[in-house]
């Protein structure tokens, strides 16, 4: 597979946005650790911590608006993602799920916040690291709960199958649990953020380019901008949904590892 869309640099035609637009130079000097995505991750950590510290500091029976906002996010994660899916042992995992949800959500929404406008998760290493965390958590929980032998045996051998068929099925089960699950978890988040940002770039930059053209093209360019704005709202929905799905799948994997037969 060659690169999908090679850009031709010749002429002064429209240069469509590509994956090169995601490789940003360092902000301060030559230090490769200060690129925009890394700074955005730090910013998201600060934002999330400050917001939830403020909203929980003066906890009252009659909540203020801030406290209400913080508590509704918390109770959403706790009840809809923790209690309904994991079951009676859910309180141990709520801190992890809550951190994951707010972190991913904040970083996704950076994609449409003016002046920041870069979804951190469109650099693939960040979702990889999050998926590794989830991978470690759900396997560790399963092994602790059932013992390593029983856990692996449950994964590898489906009951009620004639013995020779295991040659065919066991590799699939192992590949699903140890390779495909973390990979799809991270790639789903990455691909959604990447494609969404690229889509916005196409419409906004394309609209700008049309605006520099002849009169007929100038008349079209407002439609491109309007579509870009509409897509921004669509992106907001996708970003919330992807943060939800990432956390939901983490909860489902933990629940599967806790259950006796998966």
């Amino acid at each position: 597979m060659r690169s999908l869309f090679r850009l031709s640099g010749e002429g002064e035609g429209f240069v469509p946005p590509s994956s090169n637009d995601f490789e940003l130079p360092p902000v301060f000097g030559d230090n490769a650790f200060t690129t925009k995505p890394i700074l955005l991750v730090f910013l998201s950590v600060i934002l999330v911590s400050v917001f939830f510290l403020l909203s929980s500091r003066k906890a009252a029976v009659v909540p203020s608006k801030l406290q209400f906002a913080g508590e509704s996010i918390y109770s959403f994660v706790r009840n809809d993602l923790g209690r309904d899916i994991i079951g009676h042992e859910f309180m141990r995992f709520v801190p992890y799920l809550f951190t994951l949800f707010t972190f991913v959500l904040t970083n996704n929404i950076f994609g449409i916040v003016p002046f920041l406008q870069f979804p951190t998760m469109s650099r693939v290493s960040f979702p990889y690291v999050l998926a590794v965390f989830t991978f470690v958590v759900f396997h560790y929980v399963g092994i602790r709960k059932q013992g390593i032998v029983k856990y692996l045996k449950d994964i590898m051998f489906m009951p009620g199958v004639p013995k020779p068929v295991y040659i065919l099925l066991t590799p699939i089960e192992l590949a699903t649990f140890f390779l495909v699950r973390p990979l799809t978890l991270s790639l789903r988040l990455f691909a959604n953020m990447f494609a969404g940002h690229l889509l916005l770039l196409v419409f906004i930059l394309g609209g700008e380019h049309l605006f520099q053209g002849v009169l007929g093209l100038k008349l079209i360019s407002p439609f491109a901008f309007a579509f870009g704005i509409g897509l921004t709202f669509f992106e907001f929905m996708v970003q919330c949904l992807q943060a939800y799905i990432f956390t939901l799948l983490t909860a489902l994997y933990i629940a599967g590892a806790l259950a006796d037969e998966h």
Partner: peptide, 11 residues
């Protein structure tokens, strides 16, 4: 989805 993908990838 995971089963189908990993079955196809492995075999």
């Amino acid at each position: 989805f995971g089963y189908l993908l990993s079955g196809m990838l492995f075999w």
